[in-house]
C-alpha cells in the first residue's frame, strides 16, 4: 500500500475520537473475521468429536478423538485416495488445457493481424454472457452420444476452454511491446516460435494467475462432476462429499471430518500462497 497517513482514521481528529474510532474499527473488522473463521473452527472441533453436540463443540471441544477419520478411512465405500487423485487429475488437466488453448488464442487475438479477428474476439467475449445452465443439458446429451458420461474425458473436455482466460491473456499480450515479436521475426522465428520463445515467457505472471484461478475453480467445481460422474470411483471431492452427506446424514462428526479433508488442502494452499490467490481473484474483477 502506497497510501500515506492521510487515510489514517481520525487523522485530524482529537485523541479521544481517534481512539473511539480505532477501537470501533478493530471491533467491527474482528467480529466480521470471527464470523468468517468460526465455521472452520466448528468444522474442526466437530470432526474431532465422537458424539458432537452443540455444546460440546462450539468453542472448546469436550473430547478429542481421531475416530471419525479412522472410520472414514476404514469404510470401504469411502475412497479418499481415489477421490483425491481424481480431483487432482481433473483440476490439473482442465488447467493445462485452459492455459494452452487460451494463451494461443490470447496471443493470436492480441498480436496477429488476421482476418475476422475483432469479430471473433467479440464472439468469444459475448459467450461469457451464456449462463452455464443453458449448456448443461445439451452438453450432457452430447456426452451420452459420445459415450463419455462417467469418464475423465467427459469431465475435462467441456471445461477445456474458457472465454475469461482468453480475455485475460489477450489483455496481457497486448500490453507487451509488438517490437519484441518483430525483432524475433527478423531473427528468423516463425509465428509459433515468436509466441513460444518470446511472448510466452513474458506472460508467466498472467499464466500463473490464470492457472491458480482455473485450478481452484475446477477443484471446487461441484455441479459439473455431479452430473457427469455416475459412480463412486469417478467422483471428485466435492461430489464425493455430497454423497457422504447423503449416506451418513446426521452423523455430523463423520460429515465434518470428510468436509475437513476436502477443505484442508485448499486452505493450506491458500495460506501458503495467499498473494497469488488474491491477485488472481483481483484480476478476475478487473475485466469489468
Amino acid at each position: 500500500m502506497a497510501r500515506s497517513n492521510y487515510e489514517y482514521p481520525g487523522y485530524e481528529a482529537s485523541g479521544a475520537t481517534y481512539w473511539t474510532k480505532t477501537t470501533l474499527l478493530y471491533a467491527v473488522v474482528s467480529l466480521g473475521a470471527l464470523w468468517m473463521t468460526l465455521p472452520f473452527w466448528w468444522t474442526l472441533t466437530t470432526a474431532l468429536s465422537q458424539n458432537p453436540t452443540a455444546s460440546s463443540v462450539t468453542f472448546i471441544p469436550a473430547e478429542l478423538t481421531l475416530g471419525n477419520f479412522v472410520t472414514l478411512w476404514e469404510r470401504p465405500d469411502i475412497l479418499l485416495v481415489r477421490w483425491f487423485l481424481n480431483t487432482v487429475l481433473f483440476a490439473t488437466a482442465v488447467t493445462l488445457f485452459n492455459l494452452a488453448f487460451d494463451s494461443l488464442a490470447g496471443y493470436s487475438l492480441a498480436k496477429v493481424d488476421f482476418w475476422g479477428r475483432d469479430t471473433l474476439f467479440l464472439g468469444f467475449i459475448s459467450t461469457m454472457m451464456i449462463p452455464g445452465m443453458v449448456t448443461l443439458i445439451p452438453v450432457y446429451l452430447l456426452l451420452v452420444e459420445l459415450n463419455w458420461i462417467n469418464t475423465y474425458q467427459g469431465l475435462i473436455a467441456p471445461l477445456a476452454a474458457n472465454p475469461f482466460g482468453i480475455f485475460l491473456l489477450r489483455q496481457h499480450f497486448k500490453s507487451l511491446p509488438s517490437a519484441l515479436g518483430d525483432a524475433a521475426k527478423i531473427d528468423g522465428c516463425n509465428e509459433f516460435q515468436t509466441f513460444y520463445k518470446v511472448y510466452l515467457p513474458l506472460a508467466k505472471p498472467a499464466l500463473a494467475t490464470l492457472g491458480i484461478f482455473t485450478f481452484m475453480g475446477a477443484w471446487n467445481n461441484f455441479e459439473w462432476p455431479l452430473i457427469i460422474a455416475n459412480s463412486n470411483e469417478m467422483y471428485t471431492l466435492p461430489v464425493a462429499l455430497f454423497a457422504v452427506r447423503n449416506q451418513y446424514f446426521a452423523e455430523w462428526g463423520l460429515m465434518m471430518a470428510a468436509a475437513l479433508l476436502i477443505v484442508a488442502p485448499v486452505i493450506i494452499a491458500f495460506l501458503a500462497a495467499q498473494n497469488y490467490f488474491i491477485q488472481g481473484m483481483s484480476l478476475s474483477g478487473m475485466k469489468g
Binding site: 473475521a33 465455521p39 472452520f40 463443540v57 471446487n220 462429499l241 477443505v263 491458500f270 495467499q274 481473484m281
Partner: peptide
Amino acid sequence: AAYFMPVMLSGAASAVMWRWFLAADGVING
C-alpha cells in the same frame, strides 16, 4: 486472509458444513 477463507471453499463443502451448524441439534442452536 480470514475474510477470504470462505471463498476458497467448494459450495458443496460449505453447504454441508452449514447444514450441521443450522441443524436442530446444531452449533448455532447451541
